[in-house]
Design a protein around this nucleic acid. Structure first.
Lengths: 260, 260
DNA sequence: ATTGACAAGTGTACGCCGTACACCTAACGT
DNA sequence: ACGTTAGGTGTACGGCGTACACTTGTCAAT
């Protein structure tokens, strides 16, 4: 009896083991299926046992984010700001692609853990070290937004593939009908969707996410570079990125109602 | 009795009424507090009654997104693509700011409703009408990402205000201690946070979101414009936005593992 | 060797959630 | 007058996070 007990509960659980199991489980079954009960079961333990090691589910999620951050490579040394930032973002993206749950969790978190703050601080430091003014750095961080973490909303390309995912299971004539329907109702979507697919299937299976991500990233980095060169490290009243837009002088109020 | 019944249940509920109530309730109590039960209660009805008008909660959320999309102004006529896109995005942003739940719901949705597809189609149409090649339009849509909806992850500026939200409730000496702590651990965050606050409080109360949003938007639009001018409407093998980055020639594989 | 404190795991229970399913009931076309 | 049916009801199930009281295994101090 005691021997069996000794055999079954060899390792006494610990915070790290809980955390690691949570990451693995989320990787495997998705974040929406990660429940305290399921996690406990995976660890061969009763649900409430977890609460001896994490305060609650929120804290668990925060810790999972920390684990993710720890996977991001530190900034490379001896390179210009642009390459440094670029590589760091792509490293973050790598971590994110390894952990599909991370995007959603990152989006939902409001409290920043020390690890997250540390990553941001280091990120900001890359621009400052590159000679960016504090103000420009501020704007630039906003412009990057979630791209800092290696992702952006992919609201578009799921639908660029259209109902492709669902389509394949349908009989051919229904596919054709749906295709005609789409061509009629969403001609523009169809144009870019078919153009981005270089094979001749009705609707291509999406596009190269990595290419698209880097396209946007480089577009931003090039923009940053121009602004940086433009007023090197001086700090005028307010940076104005756009020369062409008429409303740019007073950007705070436009078509939206007052936002005090 | 019948008279009372007639008085209490005057309007027989209908899909539209459910939907409208859901939007109002989400506006008021937040999306996380919007449950079928709560919504039913608000309508003076038993929870299961709702299921006679919406299939399930998913569909309800989809419909709420549709309602949001319907609030976005149509594209302005007789303007260049740049202004057209700019105004449309800012209109979407207006709708989003009026409905704080929308961002999260939009992020979580995977199925695109016809209204959403219609919005995207119209959005794509603005670029095509502006003479953008189909390929460039595709990339450009990706670069915009969720900015098309008028939002981006605000992962940064919550923390730029630092623990400001929590700070105010603390005694002054604790504030000072925390400030020193932050200054030591996150010097860079502190620099941009204090710089962006133009008052002399320890940590400014964030920055002008609207300005930051438009900063990034215009940065992108200017970038699009340059690419557009660069190879007007021709479609070379693949558009390459960055001239400087060494890895640009083959962007699909970098530091991340293979993504087939 | 005994004890007693304490950390770790257990069991039960509560209130929330979405929703399946059987039921009632009032209005309406025939 | 009557069957159909759309719309509202009641009950119930399985899942969730977690509060709280409990056992149990471990080890330091007596």
């Amino acid at each position: 009896m005691t021997q069996q007990a000794e055999r079954t509960r060899r390792i006494p659980l610990s915070r790290d083991r809980v955390l690691a199991a949570a990451v693995v489980l989320a990787d495997q079954v998705g974040i929406e299926a990660l429940s305290m009960r399921r996690l406990a079961q995976e660890l061969g333990v009763v649900p409430m046992a977890l609460y001896k090691h994490v305060a609650n589910k929120e804290e668990l999620l925060d810790c999972m984010v920390d684990a993710l951050v720890s996977e991001i490579d530190p900034p490379v040394r001896d390179a210009g700001w642009k390459d440094t930032v670029r590589l760091r973002v792509l490293s973050a993206r790598g971590a994110l692609l390894r952990h599909p749950w991370a995007r959603q969790v990152l989006e939902s978190r409001t409290n920043k853990t020390p690890a997250v703050l540390g990553y941001m601080d280091s990120f900001i430091g890359m621009f400052l070290a590159g000679g960016f003014s504090v103000d420009l750095t501020h704007h630039v961080m906003h412009a990057l937004g979630s791209r800092m973490w290696g992702f952006t909303q992919e609201l578009f390309d799921d639908s660029a593939g259209g109902d492709a995912a669902g389509l394949v299971t349908l009989p051919p004539e229904a596919q054709a009908a749906m295709f005609r329907e789409m061509a009629e109702r969403y001609p523009n979507i169809l144009k870019v969707a078919t153009a981005s697919a270089h094979q001749d299937s009705v609707v291509g299976q999406g596009c190269d996410d990595q290419f698209e991500f880097e396209f946007a990233l480089d577009l931003l980095l090039d923009g940053f570079e121009r602004l940086h060169r433009q007023h090197w490290s001086s700090t005028p009243a307010q940076t104005s990125p756009a020369q062409t837009s008429p409303a740019q002088t007073s950007p705070a109020q436009t078509s939206t109602p007052a936002t005090p």
